[in-house]
Amino acid sequence: MAISMQSSKGQSSGDTNRFEGDPGTYVFALKEIIIDEGSDFDDKTKTFPQARLVWEDQDGDTFSDSFVRIPLGFRLNDKAKWTNRLSALVGRPLTDDDAARVSIDLGPDIQSYDDLAAAVGEVTDSGRKAFLKVLALDFDGESLFGRAAQLTLGVNAKGYNTCAAAGASPMPTSGGKKKKAPVATGETEPLMTAPSAPPARRNPSGDADYGY
């Protein structure tokens, strides 16, 4: 059973980032979401479920959008990085009235936020913390996987692309002379159009295998 978002009333197994670009705004489609256990920057004893959103551009390069904290109780907090990403995919800022329209499927054994926190806090036979894939993320029954959004990326001190908490935005509305938004092969068409994205540079590192 999918979990509905509520109104406002970690380290992954490997680096999937194969996108390298100069600071700027790029168009990506959401490919998958991995959830593991994160911790507070100052107090590592404070842990919580965090997501890594994997985005894919028109060339098939992936950007790993990490450290996206899942809001406590799946609340749709408008200041949260998670809500910013969902709003960008839906196409407008989400409100409390939209909360029940967003649902996430994490598998049959996870029916609440507490279930999720317990699951990612477990240690696997290999000695690593558990992590899992999001099976479905829907708005009004329609999947958000494969939808496109604009991500404004910077570059950190280590030379990696990063996206700020409010760094995702919806695709522009139709009407202007815009190019069609690129989406990953085999994914659903976006609902809106987008300007052309700056060219991306490739990084040959491979994807990691995932599993709970």
Results as ranks from 00 to 15, higher is better:
I104F: 05
D115Y: 09
A99C: 11
D96Q: 01
D96R: 02
V155K: 02
G146E: 10
G107V: 12
F139E: 12
V120F: 01
G127I: 04
D109G: 03
A149L: 15
A100T: 10
I110A: 04
A130M: 05
Q150P: 03
K133F: 02
L106N: 09
L137V: 09
E142W: 06
A136Y: 00
A119S: 11
T124C: 06
G91L: 12
G121N: 13
T152Y: 07
R147L: 13
A117T: 08
A157M: 11
D138G: 03
D114S: 15
A100I: 01
Q111E: 08
E122N: 06
A136W: 06
D98E: 01
N156H: 05
S126F: 00
D96W: 02
F131T: 14
A130C: 04
A130T: 10
L106W: 05
N156S: 09
F139G: 13
S103N: 12
L135G: 12
S112K: 00
R101Q: 14
T95V: 13
G141D: 09
L144D: 07
L106I: 05
L116V: 09
L151A: 14
G91P: 11
V102E: 12
V134S: 07
K133S: 14
Q111R: 05
L151T: 11
G141T: 04
D115E: 05
D114G: 14
A157P: 12
V134N: 09
L144A: 02
D115P: 12
L144F: 09
G146P: 06
L94F: 08
A100R: 07
S126L: 02
A157W: 07
R101D: 12
L116E: 15
D140F: 10
A119K: 13
L135Q: 11
F139D: 09
N156C: 11
S126Y: 02
K158W: 05
E142D: 15
G91E: 13
D97M: 04
E122W: 00
G121S: 09
F145Q: 06
